[in-house]
Design a protein around this nucleic acid. Structure first.
Lengths: 337, 337
DNA sequence: CGGAAAATTGGTTGCGCAACCATATTAGGA
DNA sequence: TCCTAATATGGTTGCGCAACCAATTTTCCG
C-alpha cells in the first residue's frame, strides 16, 4: 500500500496538489469552499503530510534540538518542562539527546542533529569540543547554552553563576557561625566544580578552608551517595567538622539521614545546606536549607529566545544575545542555625 | 552560503556522489583507498548528510516516537532512561512528545509523529481516541503501549497490572491487621484508577470498604498534595482510619510528614503505603513501605521489542506480540507494622 | 454591463539522497 | 598472458513537497 500524497488528496478534491499544500499549511488565498472540499478529502483519506519532503523542499523544519547530560537528574525535568511548554505552543518539535556528560557523545549528537536542519539548539553548558563548537557556529541557527554561565557564549547563554552561588553558600554558613565547613560533591561536572570553586575561594579568603573537608566522587549523585560521602567525611576528619555544603539536595538528604543515625544534631552540631531546592527539601526533618534555582525558567526562557530570534520583530532584535542571568536564591530553613 | 551536499564531497574526492553515499552509510563494496579519500573530503569540508533527503529517498528514518503524559513525574525519567539507553546503542533517535494526560494532545502528537515516518512508536497506556488508534494501526510499524496492562493492545503491551498491584497492597494492609484503610490519590489517570479499583475490590470482598476513606483529586501529585489530602481525610473521617494507601510515594511522604506533625504514630496508629519505590522512600522516617516497579525495564524492554520487530531474525519472530508483564513487588519497610 | 485590479488557482522545477541497473575495474586461475 | 568471475563504481530516476511564476477567475467600481 503506497503512502498517501498531496496528489491523492488533490485528485479526490478535484484541485491541484499545490492548493492542497496551501490548505495543509494554513496559507491564505484559498477560497472557503475549496478549502472545505480539500479538508473533507484530507479527513476522508486520513492524509498526513510527509515532513521529510516538506523540510527538504522548504528547508523549514520546526525542529529544535535539545542536548542534556542526564535523564536521571531531576533538575533536567523542570528545564525540559519549560522547554516543552513553550515549544508546544509555538508548534515546534523537540529532538532530545542525552549526552551522558560526555563531550564526545555530545559531538556525535550535534552532528546527528545538524543533519535534521534544526531551527535552534539548546545545549547544556560550555564544555563543547572544538569541533562541536565549530559545527554549532557554522549552523547559522540560534544556539542557547543553558544551566550555567559560560565563559564565551557561542550565541546566547541562559543560566546563573554557579561560582557565585557556591560563594554565597559559604558566606551564609560563615554568617551562621559555622567554621569547619565541608563540601560533599558527586558527579563533578563543570557546574558543580564551579560551585566548589566559589565555595573554596570564599572560605580561603577568611582562612577557613581545609581541603581535607572536601570529599567528592565522579559517580552519580543519590541519597545513598550522600550517606557514604558523609561517612567518609567523618572518618577523614575524625568528626572535626561543623557544617556541610552538599552539591545537591539528594546528597543533603542522605546527610540528614546519616546525622540522625549517628546522633549528630542538626543544625546545632552540624549545619547542612543543599542545592536546587527540590520539593522534598521542604519536608525533611529538619527542613533543608538550600539554594533555589529557576530551572523551569531556564528552559522556557531559552525556548522563548530561540523563538524570538527565529521570528525577528522590531522590539526584540537588540536583546537576544549574550548572557541572561536567571539568578539563584538562598532558602533558609532549619538545617542551619 | 549553500548547504554542502554529496556532490560537493564527490567533487573534492573525485568520485561519484553515490560512492560518497556508500561511504557515509557504511555500505561495503568500496575499496579502502577510495573510502579513505572520501572520508578525508568529508572531514575537510565538514559535510553532514541531510537526513530529510535521506528519509525521503529511502523511507528509513531511524526514528522512534515516544509519547508520555508528563515530564514532571519522576516515574517517566526512569522509563525514558531505559528507552534512550537502548535507542542510543541501536543508533535510533527519539522524538519525544508530552501529551499532558490529554487524549486530544496525544492525537495531535501522533499525527505529527506519523508525518516523520517513524520506525516504531512507544505510547503510554491504552486510552487513545478511536482516531488515534486507527492511525496507529494503519502506520504499519511496531507500537508498544507501556506502563499498564491494557485491555486490547494495539500491538505490543509492556507493563504490569495496576489492578492487581492495588489489590496486593490492600491485602498487605489487611494482613498487617489494619482494618480502616484509606486511599489517597492525585492526578487520577487510568492506571491510578485501576490501582484504586483493585484496592476497592479486595477491601469490599472482606467488607472493609468505606468510600468516605477514599480521597482523590485530579490535580497533579506532590508532597504538599499528600499533606492536604491527608488533612482532608482526617477531617472527613474524624480520624477514624488506621492505614493509608497513597497512589504514589510523593503523596505518602507528605502523609508521613503530616502524621509527625499531628502526633500520629506510624506504623502503630497509622500504616502508610506508597507506590513506585522512589529512592527517597528508603530514607524517610520511618522508612516507607511501598510497591517497587521496574520502570527502567519497561522502557528498555519496549525499545528492545521495537528493535527486534524492525530487525526480524529466526529466533525472535514468535515472541514479539501481546502482553509482556514487567511485574511489581511489595517492599515492606517500617511505615507498616 | 465593461474593464482593471485583486484574488485565487495551477504548472514546472529542484531540494539531496538512495534504489536500481548498467558499466568498468580488479583478482585469480588456467 | 588471457579470460572469467567477482567486485567496485557510476548514471538515471523518483521520493513528496513548496518556491516561483504564469494563468485564470472573481470582485468591484464607474
Amino acid at each position: 500500500m503506497k503512502r498517501l500524497t498531496l496528489k491523492d488528496v488533490a485528485a479526490m478534491a478535484e484541485v491541484s496538489p499545490i492548493t492542497v499544500s496551501r490548505v495543509v499549511n494554513g496559507a491564505d488565498g484559498v477560497r472557503a469552499n475549496v478549502r472545505q472540499k480539500v479538508e473533507a478529502a484530507i479527513a476522508e483519506l486520513g492524509y498526513i503530510p510527509n515532513r521529510s519532503a516538506s523540510v527538504l523542499a522548504s528547508s523549514k523544519s520546526k525542529l529544535i534540538g535539545v542536548l542534556i547530560p542526564s535523564l536521571s537528574n531531576v533538575v533536567f525535568n523542570d528545564v525540559l518542562r519549560g522547554i516543552y511548554d513553550i515549544a508546544t505552543t509555538a508548534n515546534y518539535q523537540i529532538l532530545l539527546f542525552n549526552t551522558h556528560y560526555s563531550p564526545l557523545e555530545e559531538m556525535r549528537a550535534v552532528r546527528t542533529l545538524l543533519g535534521q536542519s534544526p531551527e535552534g539548539i539548546i545545549i547544556t553548558g560550555g564544555e563543547q569540543t572544538a569541533t562541536t563548537r565549530t559545527m554549532l557556529e557554522e549552523a547559522r541557527v540560534p544556539i542557547v547554552q543553558i544551566m550555567g554561565k559560560v565563559d564565551k557564549p557561542i550565541d546566547i547563554n541562559v543560566g546563573f553563576s554557579h561560582f557565585d552561588a557556591g560563594g554565597a553558600v559559604a558566606q551564609l554558613l560563615l554568617d551562621k557561625r559555622y567554621r569547619k565547613i565541608a563540601f560533599l560533591g558527586a558527579r563533578m561536572d563543570r557546574r558543580t566544580c564551579q560551585r566548589l570553586d566559589g565555595f573554596k575561594q570564599r572560605l580561603s579568603a577568611v582562612n577557613y578552608l581545609d581541603d581535607r573537608r572536601i570529599i567528592t566522587t565522579s559517580e552519580p549523585s543519590s541519597v545513598a551517595m550522600g550517606v557514604s560521602l558523609f561517612r567518609e567525611l567523618m572518618e577523614v576528619t575524625k568528626g572535626d567538622c561543623d557544617a556541610v555544603f552538599c552539591c545537591n539536595d539528594d546528597l543533603a538528604i542522605g546527610v540528614l539521614h546519616e546525622c540522625k543515625k549517628m546522633n549528630i544534631s542538626v543544625p546545632e552540631e552540624m549545619g547542612v545546606c543543599g542545592f536546587n531546592d527540590i520539593e522534598m527539601a521542604a519536608f525533611t526533618e529538619p527542613a533543608l536549607t538550600t539554594v533555589r534555582v529557576n530551572r523551569y525558567r531556564m528552559g522556557s526562557k531559552a525556548m522563548e529566545l530561540i523563538f524570538e530570534k527565529t521570528h525577528p520583530t522590531s522590539e526584540n532584535k537588540s536583546t537576544t544575545s549574550g548572557y541572561i542571568n536567571t539568578g539563584f536564591e538562598l532558602v533558609m530553613r532549619n538545617s542551619t542555625r
